[in-house]
Design a protein around this nucleic acid. Structure first.
Length: 110
DNA sequence: TCATTGGCTATCA
DNA sequence: CTGATAGCCAATG
């Protein structure tokens, strides 16, 4: 085992954070897709934990991560904040869900 | 070991 | 279509 910097996080969290950073602006991903990409499709909940436990909120675009059905899910800084950011990126939102969500969905390995 | 969690799927109104 | 509800499952602390 190599020694890791303090900024490096343990397995799952680190993977999640790294993967989220791969999501370009104007696109969104889901916890489930992330989990599947990491190899644990059922670990979607842990993805959320990792995102909320991120080392730096500004560094991780957690606002680009939403639920599988397009609902915003949750956000440390408040759902309104997340909504606002997504709209700013060009995502249309109705209520607490994304319109044409699949259209903005970013898939890993594709 | 237990409790917690920013979820997922399925089902119903 | 939207929303509300019920089980499930896996990592973190």
């Amino acid at each position: 085992m190599e020694k890791r910097s303090k900024l490096e996080l343990s397995g799952f969290r680190g993977k999640v954070l790294a993967s989220v950073q791969l999501v370009p602006r104007g696109r969104v991903t889901t916890y489930g897709e992330l989990a599947r990409f990491l190899g644990c499709p059922k670990a979607a909940r842990v993805i959320g934990q990792a995102l909320k436990r991120n080392p730096r909120l500004e560094r991780i675009p957690c606002h680009r991560v939403v639920r599988a059905d397009g609902s915003l899910g949750g956000y440390v800084a408040g759902l309104e904040r997340k909504k606002n950011l997504l709209i700013k990126e060009g995502v249309k939102i109705r209520g607490n869900k994304i319109v044409n969500f699949k259209k903005f969905l970013f898939q890993f390995g594709c």
